[in-house]
Computed example of a mutant assay.
Amino acid sequence: MDTIELTLPFKAEYVSTARLVASSLANRVGFDIEVIEDIKVSISEVCSKIVNIGSKVADAYKIIFIVSGKEIKITFCCEDTSLKCIFDAENDRLAIDIINALMDNVELCTSNNYILSMSKILEESI
C-alpha cells in the first residue's frame, strides 16, 4: 500500500494538479483511460467545491491518495474542521450524482476527521 499526500492552496488553478496526480496514480493501478477520466471528473467536482467554499483559518487542503493493489482511495482533508458535509443534498444534487455514479465508494458526510472520501476498484476483465 502506497500513500501519496498532495497539499493544495484554495485556488482554482491548482485543481488541474490534483487531476494530473490522480491520473498518474490511477494509471499505475491499471485503470483504463475511461475510468481514469471518471476519477479525474470526480476529483474536479470535489476540489472545485472545496475551492469555492474556501477557509478562513486554513491556507490549504490536502488530498490523500492510497494506492493498494487494485484500488485507489482518495480522501480530502483540511485543518479547518468546519469544512464538513460540503455538498448540500438539494443545491449540489448534480455534483453528488456525478461523483456517486463515477466512483465505487463515496463517503460524503461523515463524523471522521476528513471532508470526503471516495474510492475506485479495478474490475478484472473476463
Rank of each mutant, 00 (worst) to 15 (best):
residue 37 E to W: 01
residue 19 R to W: 06
residue 75 T to M: 05
residue 58 A to S: 15
residue 37 E to C: 01
residue 22 A to Y: 00
residue 82 S to R: 15
residue 115 I to F: 12
residue 89 A to C: 03
residue 4 I to E: 07
residue 8 L to P: 02
residue 83 L to W: 00
residue 7 T to D: 09
residue 102 L to D: 10
residue 126 I to R: 15
residue 110 T to R: 08
residue 103 M to S: 08
residue 15 V to D: 10
residue 71 E to I: 07
residue 45 E to K: 06
residue 12 A to H: 15
residue 58 A to H: 07
residue 36 I to C: 11
residue 54 G to I: 07
residue 27 N to Q: 12
residue 115 I to V: 14
residue 26 A to L: 04
residue 89 A to K: 10
residue 16 S to F: 10
residue 125 S to L: 11
residue 63 I to V: 14
residue 40 K to Q: 11
residue 59 D to N: 14
residue 122 L to V: 10
residue 86 I to K: 04
residue 81 T to L: 13
residue 106 V to W: 06
residue 119 S to R: 10
residue 59 D to V: 02
residue 123 E to A: 12
residue 32 D to G: 11
residue 56 K to W: 02
residue 77 C to H: 11
residue 13 E to C: 09
residue 66 I to K: 05
residue 101 A to M: 09
residue 89 A to Q: 15
residue 21 V to H: 04
residue 56 K to P: 00
residue 124 E to C: 10
residue 115 I to Q: 04
residue 45 E to S: 02
residue 118 M to W: 05
residue 117 S to N: 10
residue 100 N to Q: 13
residue 93 R to K: 15
residue 81 T to W: 10
residue 73 K to H: 09
residue 73 K to A: 07
residue 93 R to V: 08
residue 5 E to A: 11
residue 31 F to E: 06
residue 49 K to T: 08
residue 119 S to Y: 05
residue 95 A to V: 09
residue 32 D to N: 14
residue 9 P to M: 09
residue 18 A to D: 01
residue 108 L to T: 05
residue 108 L to W: 15
residue 33 I to P: 03
residue 53 I to M: 01
residue 4 I to T: 11
residue 73 K to L: 01
residue 16 S to Q: 14
residue 109 C to M: 06
residue 98 I to D: 00
residue 103 M to P: 00
residue 84 K to F: 08
residue 64 I to Q: 09
residue 30 G to A: 05
residue 52 N to M: 11
residue 65 F to S: 00
residue 49 K to V: 09
residue 20 L to G: 15
residue 104 D to Q: 07
residue 92 D to P: 07
residue 4 I to A: 00
residue 108 L to F: 15
residue 68 S to Y: 07
residue 105 N to H: 14
residue 12 A to G: 06
residue 88 D to Q: 03
residue 39 I to Y: 00
residue 109 C to P: 06
residue 47 C to F: 01
residue 91 N to V: 08
residue 81 T to S: 14
residue 35 V to P: 00
residue 116 L to M: 10
residue 21 V to G: 04
residue 98 I to W: 06
residue 50 I to A: 04
residue 102 L to I: 04
residue 121 I to G: 01
residue 87 F to T: 02
residue 22 A to T: 09
residue 119 S to G: 13
residue 14 Y to H: 14
residue 73 K to Y: 09
residue 21 V to N: 08
residue 47 C to M: 08
residue 80 D to K: 03
residue 110 T to A: 05
residue 96 I to C: 06
residue 126 I to K: 14
residue 17 T to S: 12
residue 81 T to V: 14
residue 32 D to W: 03
residue 42 S to D: 06
residue 117 S to D: 02
residue 60 A to Q: 10
residue 13 E to K: 14
residue 17 T to G: 05
residue 38 D to F: 12
residue 90 E to F: 08
residue 8 L to D: 01
residue 5 E to V: 02
residue 59 D to K: 11
residue 52 N to Q: 13
residue 5 E to S: 13
